[in-house]
Amino acid sequence: MKTMVVLGMLAALCTPLSYAETRGEQLYETYCSQCHGLNGAGGGINVPDMAVQPRDHTDTAEMSARTDEELAKAIREGGKAVNKSVLMPAWDSNLSDRQIDDLVVYLRHLCCEQ
């Protein structure tokens, strides 16, 4: 039984990214890592002089408390649309709906599948 659990955890660690996750990963690197960091933990290069720290997207507890719709809305309309800081920009002019969906899938991978 224990072995099964360990094997299961190992499998989860090594899960290859789905197509949507791969697309989301590329988008995340280009647009989001500037602030949220390359590994998603919130330590991007812009952070030292920022008044509000970007969300740590690997924080399982916090991120699990958000629905996919809430995450998509934050990306599309920016922090102020979800009662968060304007330091989180709105990306609706840059990203298509499908790209935003791919990002949400990747955020779920970051927070909860590793």
Binding site: Q34, G37, L38, A41, G43, G44, I45, V47
Partner: peptide
């Protein structure tokens, strides 16, 4: 300051990303 495509010029550490 971080080049034309910053992710290509960043090293990631537990304390955050650095140029």
């Amino acid at each position: 300051p971080a080049g034309v495509y910053p992710p290509a010029h960043i090293s990631s550490s537990p304390d955050g990303d650095e140029i």
